[in-house]
Amino acid sequence: MNYQEKTILIVEDEPSLATVLCEYFAQSGFQTHIIDNGLEVIDWVKRYQPDLLILDLMLPQRNGLDIYRELRTFSQVPVVMATARIDELDRLIGLELGADDYICKPYSPREVVVRVKNILRRVSDEGRAQENQLGLHIDESKMTVSLNGQNIILTPAEFRLLAFFSKHPQQVFSREQLMTHIYQDSRIVTDRTIDSHIKNLRRKLQQASQDTSSTSECIKSIYGVGYKLAL
């Protein structure tokens, strides 16, 4: 797995601990970002779509449990919950919140990196299994796409859009979020641009599918919100 394409959001208000974690993740090729208070997390996740969160339980202004619960209303991004208390860790596990892992301070940064790698590998394997089941294959290194063995010719923007959707199946994204991901050079585009890409993707997926009924709404419009991949 190429970890250089993976971004870890470290939500931690202890600067020295956050810095050490960043250094260990950087040694493995990860990109990292640090947030030291609870109020900035949700907006940052919505805007930048990190691949995993290290989320401290006790944060200034908003605690980790509240953040986690709101995250799960719009995202399935993997989360590792961190706490400084053993009894708190037991309570978290007892709540069965669904976090991907739990760690207790003081912890070994090296072990945290290993745990994160294991989680991302599992998520990737699950994504590939789902991809195989759907018959949709996306090779980002070669920028090729096929559906049930039928090659699909996409523009670069269409490819980035479909690849992004495939990593977050069933997750709804606004047009602004999609534009931010597809056009990372901050060019000015309109909502109609995304709508046009979606229309073209739908048409090309239908043409490549042997069963057009199964792909007729593969990218669903969510009224007033945006789009999601529903294959």
Rank of each mutant, 00 (worst) to 15 (best):
D43N: 08
R85M: 06
E176Q: 06
F74M: 07
C104Q: 07
T73Q: 08
E23G: 00
T180Y: 14
C104E: 10
I54L: 15
R122V: 06
V20Y: 05
K228D: 08
A208G: 02
S166D: 12
L59M: 09
P106D: 12
K167C: 05
H197Q: 15
Q171V: 11
E70Y: 03
S196L: 15
G135I: 01
V114N: 11
F25M: 01
I86H: 06
L205N: 09
R128G: 03
Q27R: 13
Y3H: 11
R121D: 10
N148T: 13
A18L: 01
M58S: 09
V116S: 04
P169M: 10
P15A: 13
T32Y: 05
I188P: 07
A157G: 08
Y48T: 07
G38Y: 03
V225G: 01
A82D: 04
L95D: 10
W44Q: 11
D90G: 01
P15T: 12
P109S: 05
E23F: 06
E126M: 14
L57I: 11
D195E: 14
I54A: 09
K220L: 09
S166N: 15
I182S: 04
N118M: 07
A18E: 03
M58K: 14
D139V: 06
Y102V: 00
E176P: 01
D36W: 00
T144A: 05
Q206G: 15
E140P: 09
W44P: 00
S141I: 14
R187W: 01
Q31I: 07
I119D: 01
I10K: 04
S75H: 00
N151G: 14
R115Y: 05
A18N: 05
E70S: 04
D191C: 06
L161Y: 12
D66H: 05
M58T: 11
P60L: 12
K6N: 03
V172L: 10
Q171K: 06
S216T: 11
D43S: 15
Y183E: 14
S146Y: 07
I222Y: 08
V41K: 08
V225Y: 08
Q170K: 08
D195W: 14
F25P: 02
I10Q: 02
E14L: 01
L201C: 12
V145K: 00
G226Q: 03
Q49H: 14
D191A: 11
D191T: 08
E140N: 12
K167A: 08
Q61N: 09
L134T: 13
D195P: 05
R175D: 05
Q4G: 10
V11K: 00
R47F: 06
T180D: 12
P50S: 02
D185W: 06
D101S: 07
K220C: 10
R47T: 10
A163N: 06
Q4N: 11
I222H: 10
L134Q: 11
R62I: 10
Q133A: 15
I10M: 01
K167S: 10
K6G: 02
D139H: 06
Q4D: 13
D56I: 03
S196K: 13
L53P: 07
L9D: 02
Y3K: 10
D43C: 04
I86Q: 10
G149N: 01
V77N: 00
I152R: 04
Q130M: 15
Q27F: 09
S141Y: 13
D13S: 03
K142I: 08
E126H: 12
I219V: 07
G29D: 13
D36C: 02
V80A: 08
A82V: 15
K199P: 02
Y183F: 13
L178G: 00
Q177R: 13
Q184S: 13
L21C: 04
